[in-house]
Amino acid sequence: MITRRLASSRWWIGLVILLLVGFPFVSDSRGALILMTQIFIYAVFAMSYDILLGYTGIISFGHAMFFGIGAYTTAIFLHRWDHSLLSFLVSLLAVLVLTGIVSYLIGVMTLRLKSHFYAMLTLAIAGLFLVLAEKWRDVTKGSDGFTFYIPDLLKDRTSLYFVALAFMILMFFLLKRFTDSPTGKVLQAIRENEQRTESLGYQILHYKIIASMVAGLAAGLSGSMYAITLRFVNTAVFGTNVTLDALLMTIIGGVGTLFGSILGSALILLVHAGLTDLAKIHWIFERWMIFFGAIYILAVMFFPQGIVGMFRQWRAKWSKG
């Protein structure tokens, strides 16, 4: 029974991948291609957030800092050094090192705190990064930001689409691997009952730091990819809204499922794009965050399991008869 369900889920994951690979050959809309590319990249960012929120039960309001570090690091490499593929790859390495160090340090210092204080402190630390990016104008050009060239290979929108798709699939399986690993299981145990996990002899802090590092690394990479799609970076990448986007996507898609983050990313960016179009008709649609915010609050209060969770519940009920 379990193997069959697993097999069937593999089957439709394959189908989704096939459809996504086929998409550029069917659609010739540049806009749709760019939108899809962004969905993939945001999906990785949301999945990285899910490691914290869904798998470990930590709420961070400062996840944007890793996204921002990724975006700026790659942008600065391509801008200052050269815009070769090598430079891009080296920048990814630098992102991993930087986000690794930052997430480790912040984790060591803050993960001891209770959830309220942790949430607040991460909000403040992300705020510090935002201030830093605004003040350090020599490097970041402040809130105006700067544009840069990207490697030739990624210039073509279609190839960038495939790179982003491959990136998402790779990250999905890597993170899936991580959550299914013994470490991932401990994280879920912490989420369910911190005291009990601790009394079983696990060092909670140690595991939480691992979770925050994995999340930080993945978020940093998604930030790099984000900068590549925009060919531009400014301080907005450190904004609280960036973190809230991830929170929204994870919650609406379904926490603790990874796949839900992909779904949430797609849903929110698609609806966002639709509402932006509608904004030409009526200005109220420019304030699309209200709709998402309201849906988000209702989701937290009434459907904390999200779309994927609801689907699973429904399927479980159905198969029971």
Partner: peptide, 11 residues
């Protein structure tokens, strides 16, 4: 609670 009040701030 943390999530809802943050969402509230946004809205």
């Amino acid at each position: 609670q943390i999530q809802v009040t943050m969402g509230l701030l946004l809205v």
